[in-house]
Design a protein around this nucleic acid. Structure first.
Lengths: 153, 153
DNA sequence: TCACATTTAATTGTTCGCAATTGAATGTGC
DNA sequence: GCACATTCAATTGCGAACAATTAAATGTGA
């Protein structure tokens, strides 16, 4: 009896991969964010950096990297672009000259108000209750943290 | 009574963003996959293309793009790298000269056997039952599809 | 103090991801 | 048959993402 798919192949089928679900969902989010963030003059990773800075200002690059799981190879050019857009200022710490402190400019602070409209639009696009989203978020964060724990071995 | 965070800021807090959960989980997956895929000589997006081709061979670029939600700007150079690695062959369709058909080489087919070890390792790294992962995957796919539906408006 | 390791950011090179454009092939309406 | 739009891949340019390396500043132990 001929079969189209072998049962042994199930683990390799695209639709069975949770990683692809996550991967493609991340891209879908990016595409929904794009038109919203265009109005703010930000890309999605730049928006994440601004979220960090709106919570706490004047932090070293390393702190931003730890919160976003990104390294200096990604952040240095990104922060330079944010500086070129007059949203942040980069200054060497006087206590520790190795560190570069990232501070918001007045324009960077001001952008926060314009950004408040973004989460609402995303919520609408996800067509989902807040409690469902929170539950999902917690599950995904749990998975992420377990994966990250494996990496640091 | 002074507060560190205003309640009005809650929607902008990084840890409340499901998009960041998804974004950072995708990167965590990528980092777990990296050492496994290095042995196959593949990057993660290349692995996804190979998953598609292992299911069905000799398909136009467009079909791969629709399955992976990627366009020719991403796929053309990626497929050229897979061709340079002798894993696929790219040929213009004779019925429709606009299409480029992607077919696996013998080496491309053979790589499937080596790839079977990958999903097991990922499952172990996720430290989670299969049924939990399947449930999560379905939820995330549902969210992704709702987001994609909004984009096509 | 001085050799040594550690920390931190910057740099370089490769690979994605996508918008926008190009150009060739195909389909269509007249 | 012929103008026209559509489809498809390729190309270009920009912004991530990350590995690997570099270089400067700092910390540590003898």
């Amino acid at each position: 009896m001929p079969r189209k798919h072998s049962a042994a192949d199930a683990p390799l089928r695209l639709d069975n991969q949770i990683c692809f679900a996550v991967y493609s969902a991340a891209h879908a989010f990016n595409r929904v964010y794009k038109p919203l963030l265009d109005r703010l003059g930000l890309t999605y990773p730049q928006y994440l950096v601004m979220l960090v800075l709106w919570e706490r200002d004047d932090v070293p690059v390393k702190d931003i990297g730890e919160k976003l799981f990104l390294d200096s190879g990604t952040l240095t050019p990104l922060l330079k672009r944010l500086e070129a857009a007059h949203l942040v200022k980069r200054t060497r710490s006087s206590e520790d000259e190795r560190q570069v402190l990232i501070a918001l400019t007045p324009q960077g602070h001001a952008l926060k108000d314009k950004a408040r409209a973004v989460p609402q639009s995303i919520l609408a696009a996800s067509d989902c209750s807040v409690s469902e989203l929170v539950a999902m978020k917690d599950e995904i964060v749990g998975l992420r943290d377990r994966l990250n724990a494996v990496i640091g071995e």
